[in-house]
Measured scan of single mutants.
Amino acid sequence: MAAGGDHGSPDSYRSPLASRYASPEMCFVFSDRYKFRTWRQLWLWLAEAEQTLGLPITDEQIQEMKSNLENIDFKMAAEEEKRLRHDVMAHVHTFGHCCPKAAGIIHLGATSCYVGDNTDLIILRNALDLLLPKLARVISRLADFAKERASLPTLGFTHFQPAQLTTVGKRCCLWIQDLCMDLQNLKRVRDDLRFRGVKGTTGTQASFLQLFEGDDHKVEQLDKMVTEKAGFKRAFIITGQTYTRKVDIEVLSVLASLGASVHKICTDIRLLANLKEMEEPFEKQQIGSSAMPYKRNPMRSERCCSLARHLMTLVMDPLQTASVQWFERTLDDSANRRICLAEAFLTADTILNTLQNISEGLVVYPKVIERRIRQELPFMATENIIMAMVKAGGSRQDCHEKIRVLSQQAASVVKQEGGDNDLIERIQVDAYFSPIHSQLDHLLDPSSFTGRASQQVQRFLEEEVYPLLKPYESVMKVKAELCL
C-alpha cells in the first residue's frame, strides 16, 4: 500500500493539533497551500530580480507567473513527485505547466533550498508574528487579574506546605514575570531571523556568478533584492546548502521555554482548584465526569500541561538535527523538520489560546482563602504575639514557653481530632496574655502579614508589564474561544 493518505478522510490519521486544537490561522501558515504558494512567490521574486539585473526574462513571463501564483494543481504535483521522487522539481514542473512561456526560467540558477529553506524562514517569521500578540493578550488578562487582587491576602506555599502570606495578585505576578520573559525572547528570536537568500547549491553562489558572467556586484544585488522582497532586513552571508540548523534550535528553545512557563502556571491553577481557592472557567453544560456528576475538573489547565510537556520535548529534535548536518548538509534534517517545526508552533498556539481562555474567566473564592488563612495564621502570628507581650512588660522566655504549650495543644486538636485551630481562643482565655487581649485582632490582621506584596504588584505592572504590552494595544480586544 502506498504511503500517505487522504487526510480529510475519517479513515486516515490526522494530527489532533490540526484537527482538534490549533487555530485556523496557525494551521494555514503550515498548510501545503501556504507552503507551495510561497515557493511560487519566491520563484517570481527571483525572476523579477534577475530581470532587473539584466537576464533575458520578459515582462510577459513575469506576468504569467504572477497570474498563476494561486493556480496550484495539487493532484498534478503529487503525481509528479511520485514520478520524480523530488518535491521541488515536482512543483517546478507543475508551475511550468500553467506558465508555459515562463517554464524555462522558473528556478533559474537556484537549488531546492532556495524555495525550501527560504519558505521555512518566512513561515517561522509569520508563525512567530501570530504567537506574539496571543502571548501579549494572556499577559494582559493576567495583569488585569493581578491588579484587581493585588491586596487580597492568601496563604503562600513553599514545598506545598503553608508559608508566609502573600497576595493573590502577587502570586499571579510570578506567572506574568515568566511570560514577559517569554514574550521578550519570542520577539528577540523573531527579529534575529535572517533570510537564507540566493546562495546556490553549497552556499557559494557559483551558479549565479556564472549567470551574471562573473559580476560579483550583481550577485550581491540579486541576494539583497530577493531578501528585501521577502520582507527581511538581512540575509546570511555564510550558508551551506541550507541555512544553519542552529536557527531551528533557537526558535524551538524559546517555544519550549514558553511551554515550561505555561505548565507551571496551569499546575498552580490545578492545585488551587483542589484547594477550592480558584477555578478555571466551567461552562453551564460542561460535564466533569461521566460517573461523578459533582466533579469540576480543571480540564483546560490539564490540557495545557499535557501539550506543554510535548512542546518542551520537541527542542531535542533540532538539537540532534543540527549535530548531524555533515559538511554542507545531509538530508537527516528533512523529514524531522517537516514534523517538529509545525508541531512546535501548533502546540504553542494551542496552549496560548487555551491559557487566554482560562485567564479571561478565572474565578476566585475569597471566603475559602480566608478560612485557610484562619487555619494557619495563628501559628504564624506567634512571633508577633511574643513581641507584643514583651512590649507590655512580659518575659520573652516565659511567653515563648506559654505559646509553645498552647500551640501544641491547638495542633493536637487540628491533627488528632480534625478540629479547627483554636490557638487564639486559648490565648484569649489565658490570664497571662490579658495585657494584649485587646491587640489580638490587630495582630491577626492578614494584611499585616503580606509585606509589600501589593506595592510590588503595582510597581511591576507599571514599570515592566504595561510598557512591554504597549506595541500590542491594537490587538488586545480579541477574545479566545474554545470549541473543545
Rank of each mutant, 00 (worst) to 15 (best):
Val465Thr: 11
Leu121Arg: 04
Ser19Leu: 15
Cys304Tyr: 10
Trp175Phe: 00
Thr52Pro: 04
His442Val: 12
Val414Ala: 15
Ala22Pro: 10
Val390Gly: 09
Met26Gln: 06
Ala230Met: 10
Ile358Ala: 13
Phe282Tyr: 11
Leu355Ser: 15
Arg337Asp: 01
Asn71Glu: 05
Gln286Arg: 05
Leu53Cys: 05
Gly4Ala: 10
Met312Asp: 15
Pro153His: 00
Leu131Val: 11
Ala381Trp: 06
Lys284Met: 07
Glu280Met: 15
Phe433Thr: 12
Ile269Arg: 01
Phe449Val: 08
Pro446Trp: 00
Arg426Trp: 15
His91Leu: 09
Asp268Ser: 02
Thr52Lys: 04
Ala143Arg: 07
Phe327Arg: 03
Asp59Met: 03
Cys98Tyr: 06
Arg303Asp: 10
Thr119Lys: 05
Leu319Ala: 01
Asp268Lys: 00
Thr119Arg: 05
Gln184Glu: 05
Val219Met: 14
Glu376Arg: 12
Glu80Pro: 09
Leu461Val: 13
Ser301Gly: 14
Ile176Tyr: 03
Met292Pro: 09
Ser31Pro: 06
Val465Arg: 15
Met89Leu: 07
Lys402Cys: 12
Ser23Phe: 08
Asp349Thr: 09
His437Thr: 15
Gln408Glu: 07
Thr450Lys: 15
Thr52Arg: 04
Leu275Pro: 10
Asp11Trp: 14
Lys35Pro: 10
Ala78Asn: 08
Phe160Thr: 00
Thr158Asn: 10
Val189Glu: 00
Gln456Asp: 06
Leu440Gln: 09
Ala47Ser: 08
Lys367Leu: 13
Val189Trp: 05
Cys304Gly: 10
Pro162Leu: 03
Glu417Cys: 05
His310Ser: 06
Ala235Met: 07
Ser448Met: 12
Tyr114Thr: 01
Pro16Met: 00
Val363Thr: 05
Ile436Arg: 09
Glu462Arg: 05
Ile62Val: 07
Thr239Ala: 05
Asn185Tyr: 01
Gly259Thr: 06
Leu174Phe: 14
Ser140Arg: 11
Leu55Asp: 06
Gln356Ser: 00
Ser447Ile: 10
Met225Val: 13
Thr158Pro: 10
Val247Pro: 02
Gln356Arg: 12
Lys479Arg: 14
Thr313Ala: 15
Ala77Glu: 01
Ser334Gly: 11
Tyr34Ser: 06
Asn71Leu: 09
His437Tyr: 05
Leu121Ala: 03
Cys340Trp: 07
Leu484Thr: 13
Arg196Ala: 05
Asp445Ala: 14
